[in-house]
């Protein structure tokens, strides 16, 4: 059972996805720079992708999994563009990328 985990069973992939998600979550919760937090969000999204495609493969190579992966990365690209534009706009107004110093809607 333990060697199957190391050889790459379904549980192994789900475990990797889980650890990736937890690292991303810790990045968002602990780091202060908005750009690093953004990278953490991308990491969490990738963890979900790994889990999705692992389940798709163990359903006998389901095509729907890959199609949904396609849609997920389309949405992720949108999220990246808008998120980074928000960071740039925040920097224009307050000259900071620190999430702690941007905790009020107005000042």
């Amino acid at each position: 059972m333990n060697s199957a985990l190391l050889q790459g069973s379904l549980q192994g992939y789900i475990l990797v996805a889980l650890l990736l998600f937890v690292i991303g979550l810790a990045t968002v919760l602990i780091r202060r720079s908005l750009l690093v937090q953004f990278m953490g969000i991308e990491l969490m999204l990738n963890a979900a992708n790994v889990a999705l495609l692992a389940f798709a493969r163990y359903r006998g190579g389901d095509v729907q999994g890959t199609v949904f992966y396609l849609f997920i990365i389309a949405v992720a690209a949108c999220e990246a563009a808008v998120g980074l534009a928000l960071v740039v706009a925040l920097y224009r107004h307050r000259h900071t990328t620190d999430s702690d110093s941007a905790d009020a809607l107005r000042r």
């Binding site: 780091r31 202060r32 720079s33 750009l35 980074l84 960071v87 740039v88 920097y91 110093s101």
Partner: peptide
Amino acid sequence: VIMLLNSHEEEAAA
């Protein structure tokens, strides 16, 4: 964006 904003290091916490 990192290079554009020139924020290579995390700022010191207030």
